[in-house]
Design a protein around this nucleic acid. Structure first.
Lengths: 112, 112
DNA sequence: TAATATACATAAATTTCTTATGCATAAATT
DNA sequence: AATTTATGCATAAGAAATTTATGTATATTA
């Protein structure tokens, strides 16, 4: 997708939001979920995702739990208490950002 | 603003869109327009704006015309023909991106 | 058996921004 | 009168967030 470059700055917020919804998820699952929700428009690359998860964990916003399923490794992440609070803040900021962007790109000849 | 970091990747599209609307604008005018439209939420810094304008010009999407008003320099930018075509594409991508983001951050308990 | 899907990870390079700094004129404030 | 704020341009250093490339390993599908 051509616009897969556009989510810079919001990846960690997306991760937090999904974890808030799902309770716990592992990395690969997150990439698939985002692809499904956006119908393929947003593709989170592994090179972006894993460092982002590690950073959120280092910041104390995520806890990790390793599991082995079908002989394959999975690292399940979930929000810490601090992570839940931070999710609220970051979502509010992202929604504000989206509103601003809409103001800027709204059609030239729209009513109002 | 805390979320002024979130527009990475979309600045050039914002510039193109504004020039498409206004016909021609100079740098400082663009910063003020964005501030006004977003009610102060998005502030385009000069360190981001001027390099972005120069890049768009180098890519052949903008033409520049220097003017002196009140003994002060102004560089008016306007879309080239190619710039107009590119604006359509980038706006479509940005709108698609915004839609994707909305899907991702929509409230947990919303209907549907 | 070869390709695709699943699952993790990291490093180099790139892009895009922030922050800091600089120059200059005009208007407003103290 | 002097200082600050607004107007207007610009660039450079540094930071942050990505992309791209690469690596390892197992399971499933064609």
């Amino acid at each position: 997708m051509a616009n897969s470059k556009l989510y810079k700055g919001s990846l960690s917020t997306i991760i937090l939001k999904l974890l808030d919804e799902e309770g716990k998820m592992y990395g690969y699952e997150i990439t698939q979920k985002v692809k499904a929700i956006t119908k393929g428009d947003l593709k989170i690359t592994e090179g972006a995702l894993y460092p982002a998860l590690h950073k959120l964990e280092a910041e104390g916003l995520l806890d990790v739990e390793v599991a082995k399923v079908d002989n394959r490794l999975r690292k399940y992440y979930k929000l810490t208490e601090q992570g839940e609070k931070e999710t609220v803040n970051r979502l509010a900021e992202l929604e504000e950002f989206i509103r601003s962007m809409q103001q800027l790109v709204k059609p030239k000849w729209s009513i109002q």
